[in-house]
Amino acid sequence: MNSIKGIIYNCRHATFLIEKKQIKKLTFTENIKLRIHLTGCSVCRIFQKQSILINRMAKRLIGDSENKDRKLDEQFKRHLQDKIENELGKNL
């Protein structure tokens, strides 16, 4: 399969390049191929938008939950505290 023709019509490959692009700089040819594909393919344009959204959300998820805190219950914390004191005691 001719490579240019292949990518222009190949959404599977285009979505691969969309993922790669968000992590690493594409090569010159990859970039051109992807741009041509996206110009003609509205479905992959939607994919790209949503893919970027998912990555942004994943980052937020971490930030969010680290701010909000999902809390450990007090009983387990006491258990942890005892364990630590115990271990420290062993070394005294």
Binding site: D69, R70, E85
Partner: peptide, 13 residues
């Protein structure tokens, strides 16, 4: 001795 108080929730999350 301060670990649980300071970091337990953070590490759990």
């Amino acid at each position: 001795l301060q670990w649980v108080k300071k970091y337990a929730d953070y590490l759990y999350t």
